[in-house]
Amino acid sequence: MQIKIHRSVLEKNENQAEINRELFKKHRTLAVNVMGSPGCGKTTLIESLIKTLGEKYRIGVIEGDYAGTVDAEKLAAYGIPVVQLDVSSCHLNADFVATGLRDMPLDRVDILFIENVGNLICPAEFDIGDLLKMVLYSVPEGDDKPLKYPLMFSLADAVVVTKTDLLPHFQFDISKVKESIARLNSKFQLFKFSSKDSESIRPIAGFLEKEFRRLVGGSPEL
């Protein structure tokens, strides 16, 4: 006898992701899922955004990448709430994030960065309930990555090419990257960032301010 069933194997994660998303909206917190390979510069970019946006917005971080507690301690030095997750997986899922949210004072956080596990494949499959997806990818990784990891790049609201100070040393064509991503993504914005160029963070910060107004509305409640 055959019994018809029509259920998603990922339904538990999908349901929890919706719960997280509602929570972010209720608290008017812009939750940003920061994804990219190990060492591509996720923590460095978050640090730079804390410095640039920290006076105007209350920032929090959920640190999900493996790094012991090194990254979390570095970010907590800015006097902001940081929660380190103990993740033993190749990606964050909505449950992990929900666990971290118990220790995060959301009503006092305007922008929450969630640093995902360093990986270009797995985090793409698991919705964590974020309001914005940011994919980072560094110059030394080569300009063919969007074609190799199309799912991840198809979901990105913003793609940041990092370590652009290294461009002179690598064969890396930014216009090719832009076209590859555009093949599967009609909505993303592309940014270039180098930790050696303090001006390069401004357009990214400006983008987040605009998204803050669009997605959670109004100005931060300082």
């Binding site: 055959q2 194997v9 198809s154 093949r183 599967l184 009609s186």
Partner: peptide
């Protein structure tokens, strides 16, 4: 055109049990 958008094909479903 090579510029497309994914509409379906991201699912992982259980369809039936045979008992």
């Amino acid at each position: 055109s090579i510029f497309v958008e994914i509409k379906e094909g991201r699912e992982f479903l259980i369809n039936y049990l045979e008992v």
